[in-house]
Design a protein around this nucleic acid. Structure first.
Lengths: 269, 269
DNA sequence: ACCTGAACACCGTTCAAGT
DNA sequence: ACCTGAACACCGTTCAAGT
């Protein structure tokens, strides 16, 4: 049941989290003679993905890491995609929702959620490339999505506008976490600190005469940045400021919405 | 020269657009006996990527489409990654920068750029998964980046803040274009209209009792949406509103920046 | 200068067979 | 119930050889 071939026929419901595809056996619980179970598979996958990246994860290499043959894995999952979907949701579980609940007011809740989300993406740089390809409807992803929705809703925006505002905030966080994660991963691969990597990259671009036209414009910006701190500090500072922009924008739109609603009531009464 | 193995050793400069890797021969110009050249390779790649997605593009299938063997491609590019990097930059070339220049004021320029960018991502749903993996320093990508920078700079924000604000706006657009493209691609694969696919998906989720907890919260939002138009209209409406939020936020921060600068001058003078 | 055939070292997945 | 060996139909890339 729920073979890879079947899965492809119904993309709308194509997720390990939906009944149509879920397999009954081996879902969880005790491990077999080889000490294998789905949890161990997922945990090991995440470690390998963090260390070596998406491209290097194969069923055979994963199996070797677990002291088992590749075919054993297929007792616990239907496809390699399933493993990645489980890994994805497991990472969403790292978002500290207790810290969100402890935060005071929607602004602070949005900030905490954004920071937790960003940090998760940076810890697992393979996530961003993959998240868009799945429905992201695992229990942890749904829980995070629910908190995001509630935080934005509490701003006072009309219900019809919360999805849009949510999207503005968290698509930004997603994109920001993606490039930050990419940057730190590539720097690490090059065996450099982020600071060295930054200055080295800029130097490389300046050597290219093809960039002298357009990059000149941004040159003063690039120079200005490192004078204000390390690359790590710049990531934080830029992130905080962008959240300032977004929160200020939401505040304005809340006010506009209230003014419009009042005008409507005035016209009616 | 510039083999795949060499490339991996210097990730900071790992791009077909940087001298270190660029190969001199066959860069452009007339096609060989088989009618092959790099432009044809890139154009065909983009068509195949649009039609069948990233996973299905292989050197062998691409070569077959071009009536040639896979190995011929290696005369024009060093690796499969190179082809994707060329394809990526070629797509950035679809952004209509003339329309941006024709727009009046930074707000309108930001809107036109955002819309052009979003449309490009929806036309080529494979782009989002891939863009983060490369440096994106091809001529077209750089040109687009330059216009984005200039539009945001003209808002009057301090130079030190433009990268952050740019990131807020265009990471949002990137994320938004990604999920919109994903949605339309999956609907198309399922052979459904976007509207049918939307209602069908929601129905599928409602059937799952695991979602009754968290999804209940968002239920009213989901219902509200389709009463206000087609899925296509919702995509447009949400996008416009999110840009309203972002532009309003930038306006507020410009004001704050001016107030702070004035206070500083007052304290000094 | 441009293109190919054969080969290498990999993939994900299936299926029948083992314990 | 859980795990494996062998096999299928693929990959990207290299290298020596063709024209």
């Amino acid at each position: 049941m729920a073979k890879a071939a079947d899965r492809a026929k119904n993309p709308a419901r194509s997720s390990v989290w939906l009944e149509t595809n879920k397999r009954s056996r081996a879902a969880r619980g005790g491990s077999g003679p080889a000490g294998l179970d789905r949890d161990r598979i997922v945990v090991t996958s995440i470690r390998m993905l963090d260390e070596e990246g998406l491209a290097k994860l194969s069923m055979r290499r994963l199996a070797t890491e677990l002291n088992v043959t590749a075919m054993s894995l297929y007792w616990y999952v239907d496809t390699k995609d399933d493993i990645i979907e489980y890994a994805l949701d497991s990472c969403y579980g790292e978002v500290d929702l207790a810290a969100v609940l402890a935060a005071d007011g929607w602004r602070e809740r949005v900030r905490v959620l954004a920071l937790e989300y960003r940090r998760m993406l940076v810890r697992h740089p393979w996530m961003s490339a993959v998240a868009g390809q799945y429905l992201n409807v695992g229990p942890h992803a749904i829980a995070v999505g629910g908190e995001i929705h509630k935080a934005i809703r509490d701003s006072g925006l009309p219900v019809s506008r919360t999805p849009s505002a949510t999207s503005a905030v968290f698509q930004f966080v997603y994109g920001y976490g993606t490039i930050e994660g990419q940057f730190s991963r590539v720097a690490q691969q090059a065996g450099m600190s982020q600071d060295d990597f930054y200055t080295d990259s800029i130097a490389a671009f300046r050597e290219e005469d093809q960039f002298t036209g357009t990059l000149e414009e941004m040159s003063e910006v690039l120079d200005e940045r490192l004078s204000h701190g390390s690359v790590d500090e710049i990531w934080d500072r830029d992130f905080d400021y962008a959240l300032d922009v977004l929160i200020a924008g939401i505040e304005v739109m809340v006010e506009r919405g209230r003014a419009e609603a009042a005008a409507e009531r005035g016209a009616q009464g």
